[in-house]
Write a protein that binds this DNA or RNA. Structure first.
Lengths: 304, 304
DNA sequence: CATCTCCGTCAAAAAAACTGACCGACACCG
DNA sequence: CGGTGTCGGTCAGTTTTTTTGACGGAGATG
């Protein structure tokens, strides 16, 4: 690298201030230092930047071209220093967030958008996982933050609760569990006769058990809640859905709550989890702050 | 500017080579010089770039962020040096070309595209003018090159001829000069009875005289040849058009050559003109070279 | 345990950046 | 026309920065 940012800055100052002398004053240097910079730059680049034939040195057209490119260079350099300043202020350079696919994505995306709008310099990576897949990914990647449906207290992890969410046991109106209900409530044994739909664990662990399976011998595993909702509406089976994803369908009657003698709905409290010894930095805290602000109120849908 | 390109380069070399020592070898410096660079950079930015707690220094995540930004900075710096190298090779930083609107623009645009594709670093500005406006603009702007229809030898200007072009005296088939011709040829006096269409001089000089005006008392001045062609086809009047702009219309019969007892067509040779004391640089020469290649052959349309 | 590489520290040396003095050229002004 | 001010190059000397080599500790390697 045979050119210097200072040299470019001198060039820029000369054109901004109008003369070598003025530039020197602006840069708090001796005038000869500025001359020296330009000389160095000219020999380094091998071209004349100023035409000194007249009384005052005037920029050559090559000089103008270099100046324009130089301005871009200075802007980049400034950008780098600004970035460092952000880091000094406590913003972390990168943050990995693992998110449980059962949680409402809208507020999370809104949070990410707000962070971007606020000029937060952190490179944020997000990752959607399901069931045990969330924790697996979190641990394997050494992520900073995890947003989970259920948090089982664990050593080395701290958790902050978010607003309560609700899940409902649903089927399509044409499904036997709805169509043939006729006012009565199904028993667990009744449910076992039908196909249960569930989202598949995104970790490849086989041992993970889902407390919300009814034990029927036909369970269809689907890749995400959008597919699951689609499958429910196609009368493929019945299953649990987070309320936020079926609000509309419940209103229009495209999906109905299954009359079940047990509980056909349950609360869960999502948690923001982080390693205790590696607590969120400024970005993480802002993320949490915004999340609390944007996360929807625990919704209590009209009871059966 | 408290950071240096060399410091960034050291940072980049360390990550590329894997260690301070390897970086020093790659940069042909003492190892301590590289350490020094990083120390300076760290104090300048106010952040730690390397974690020295272990045996080998490893980049902090801030360091990674700065490195990524630094790579962009180095790329810009390289770009600047490359630009200077181009200038050294003789490519001029900018070139202004004034073009006579009567000339075919397609080959000219093709030339400009080719120059861009070849990575010519010159900032080329083009300007379309008409009649005396071409020369006026050329002189006032101190442009490098002028492409004109007719070149009147002038002191201080040199000219290179391009391929011959043809102009035709035209009217729409429904215009009396075509409709009522009936095999005979109109005299100059006949033409004077009709409205002549002409492109207006884009300089505001009043004294410029057009040799191709027939002297009728009704002359409509239009802003360009596209408008003029449109006006001709709307039977607004008759007038000269360069062949390349009406090739299609002559074939389809939307425009017809006016049977005139004088010459209803004339050749002209476009010239590339430049100030003798400021001959075209490398870009200008390449421009001319491509122009000769792309400029259409003088076309001889089927005679009446 | 010997040996190697990595990397920080430090004082000395080398290189660079900077400065002030001097000079000629030009512009402006009374 | 001469006085005065600014511009900007040159040059030698000074200051600051950068580079270097020697030394030492810490961890791999075998």
């Amino acid at each position: 690298m045979d050119i210097t940012l200072d040299q470019i800055q001198s060039l820029e100052a000369i054109t901004a201030e109008g003369s070598f002398s003025a530039a020197a004053r602006a840069l708090n240097k001796a005038r000869t230092a500025v001359s020296y910079d330009i000389q160095k730059l000219e020999t380094a680049l091998g071209i004349l930047l100023f035409d000194r034939s007249g009384h005052r040195a005037v920029l050559t057209s090559e000089g103008r071209g270099i100046l324009e490119e130089g301005r871009l260079l200075l802007a980049r350099a400034n950008g780098l220093e600004t970035l460092a300043a952000r880091y000094r202020e406590g913003w972390e350079p990168r943050m990995q967030v693992v998110i449980d696919g059962i949680l409402p994505m809208d507020p999370i995306m809104k949070v990410l958008k707000t962070l971007a709008d606020e000029g937060v310099p952190t490179q944020i990576t997000t990752r959607i996982e399901f069931l045990a897949g969330v924790q697996t990914r979190f641990e394997r990647e050494g992520a900073e933050i995890m947003l989970v449906k259920d948090f089982h207290k664990s050593s080395g992890l701290s958790a902050v609760p978010l607003k309560r969410q609700e899940s409902l046991l649903l089927a399509a109106p044409g499904h036997p569990l709805i169509r043939d209900a006729g006012g009565k409530r199904w028993s667990k044994a009744d449910l076992r006769e039908h196909i249960q739909l569930t989202v598949q664990d995104s970790s490849n662990r086989k041992d993970s058990l889902d407390a919300y399976l009814f034990g029927g011998n036909r369970v269809y595993y689907l890749s995400d809640f959008f597919t699951k909702r689609k499958a429910l509406m196609m009368e493929l089976g019945f299953g649990w859905m987070p309320y936020h994803m079926v609000e509309e369908e419940l209103k229009t009657g495209e999906l109905c709550e299954v009359p079940y003698s047990g509980e056909s709905r349950y609360d869960f409290t999502p948690f923001l989890v982080y390693p205790t010894e590696r607590p969120p930095g400024r970005t993480g805290n802002r993320f949490l702050e915004l999340l609390k602000e944007y996360f929807p109120e625990g919704i209590v849908p009209p009871s059966l």
